[in-house]
């Protein structure tokens, strides 16, 4: 089993965080320009799409309970060595703690030394920092001097 767990605390509401997680107009601002495409029912297909229409990852909605819990199966589609590993599992848990909302993202696959998990582990911390900044300031993370 290869697994990573990421946690961030965000000053927002579970409902706003849920929207920011699944709606393309939000994800495009903090998640390297990708959109999650699904009709968000158990068993529905799910995909992560780059802004130019290329498909990054595909899978299925396994569990969904807005605005608290989402599990998708997740297979890479643009790197053959990662695609060969098959489906991983990404879980999003949202819970209110005081005036903050705790987001836990778990990404796991049933194999040791997974390259897929290693690859996504480089991305998640930056995505979650960007999500936090977007929700708390209303602005995407900016690198240009203002």
């Amino acid at each position: 089993m290869s697994k990573f767990v990421y946690v961030t605390y965000i000053q927002t509401t579970p409902e706003k965080l849920w929207e920011a997680l699944i709606k393309p107009e939000f994800t495009k601002q903090y998640w390297v320009g990708v959109s999650q495409i699904s009709d968000w029912k158990v068993g529905s297909s799910w995909k992560l799409e780059f802004s130019d229409g290329r498909v990054a990852d595909t899978g299925e909605v396994l569990e969904i309970d807005p605005p608290r819990h989402l599990v998708v199966s997740w297979q890479n589609e643009f790197r053959l060595d990662l695609k060969e590993e098959g489906h991983s599992r990404a879980t999003f848990d949202i819970e209110r703690t005081g005036d903050l909302v705790k987001l836990t993202v778990t990404h796991e696959i049933d194999r040791e030394g997974s390259k897929l998990i290693e690859a996504v582990s480089g991305g998640w911390p930056a995505i979650l920092s960007g999500l936090k900044t977007l929700l708390e300031t209303g602005k995407p993370l900016q690198g240009w001097p203002s």
Binding site: Y6, V7, A126, L128
Partner: peptide, 30 residues
């Protein structure tokens, strides 16, 4: 982050707070 697995508790490194610190002083393009 500690997560229960059966009777055990497994500990995971969470690099997100360190990334938040980096974002505060390092721009996206730098």
């Amino acid at each position: 982050v500690a997560q229960k697995r059966g009777r055990e508790k497994l500990h995971y490194i969470n690099p997100v707070p360190i990334n938040d610190i980096a974002d505060r002083w390092i721009g996206k393009f730098e």
